[in-house]
């Protein structure tokens, strides 16, 4: 549901979406190191396939986004991860429009960066088996917040097309409650697990 199709938004909106996306992409990719690439690829594969898992709720069908998860696992590289996943989803699955890849990347990628910020502030990146509880907690918060922020951005953009403010927000966020809960738990559990078995995976980001 978070993939906006072609021809829904006004041109200025998706054009500025592309501008923001290209700027963030250029910055984050310049910070990429060789040792980040395998991790980035694996998480991108997960995010790419996640949107195929659907749950039918009420009048619509919702799917996983995993943007908060990407933020926790990848740091600022979550943005290129989401962008690449979106491009592949668009061309291979027909999710979302081509002109809206930019704005969709902003919708999901910027919340991913914010999720990382929450995770980083909460844990101070002090990730050891001993700090597992804290890592799990902030992982879960980041995983949930990433999705919520993405939905709020989507709702805000739909409102500019003339949809009802209250109705749209309630519909968009309400139908995604299970997604928010599942992704929060998933991210929290996984972050805790990695803190126990392979804390070096989080690395220096």
């Amino acid at each position: 549901m978070v993939h906006i199709s072609d021809g829904v938004l006004d041109p200025w909106l998706w054009e500025s979406g592309w501008a923001i996306t290209i700027a963030i992409l250029a910055y984050t990719l310049s910070k990429m190191k060789t040792e980040d690439v395998p991790r980035l690829s694996v998480i991108t594969a997960a995010v790419f396939v996640a949107s195929l898992i659907h749950i039918s709720i009420g009048p619509t069908s919702v799917h996983f986004i995993l943007n908060g998860f990407a933020g926790v696992m990848l740091g600022i590289l979550a943005f290129p991860c989401i962008f690449v996943a979106l491009v592949l989803q668009c061309f291979l699955f027909g999710h979302g429009g081509i002109s809206t890849i930019g704005i969709n990347a902003v919708n999901m990628g910027v919340p991913a960066l914010i999720a990382y910020l929450i995770f980083k502030t909460g844990t101070r990146l002090d990730i050891r088996p001993e700090t597992k509880k804290k890592v799990s907690l902030f992982g879960a918060i980041a995983g949930g917040v990433g999705v919520v922020l993405a939905l709020l951005l989507l709702a805000a953009e739909l409102i500019t097309t003339g949809e009802e403010l209250y109705e749209t927000t309630v519909l968009v966020v309400g139908t995604h409650v299970p997604i928010i809960v599942i992704e929060a738990i998933f991210t929290g559990v996984l972050a805790g697990f990695i803190a126990t078995v392979a804390p070096e995976l989080f690395g220096k980001k």
Binding site: P38, L40, S41, A45, F48, V49, V84, L88, Q89, L92
Partner: peptide
């Protein structure tokens, strides 16, 4: 899905 994984592997190599 398989095509997507292929592209990802290629992109990872280029990166």
């Amino acid at each position: 899905i398989i095509t997507g994984f292929g592209y990802l592997a290629g992109l990872a190599g280029i990166a």
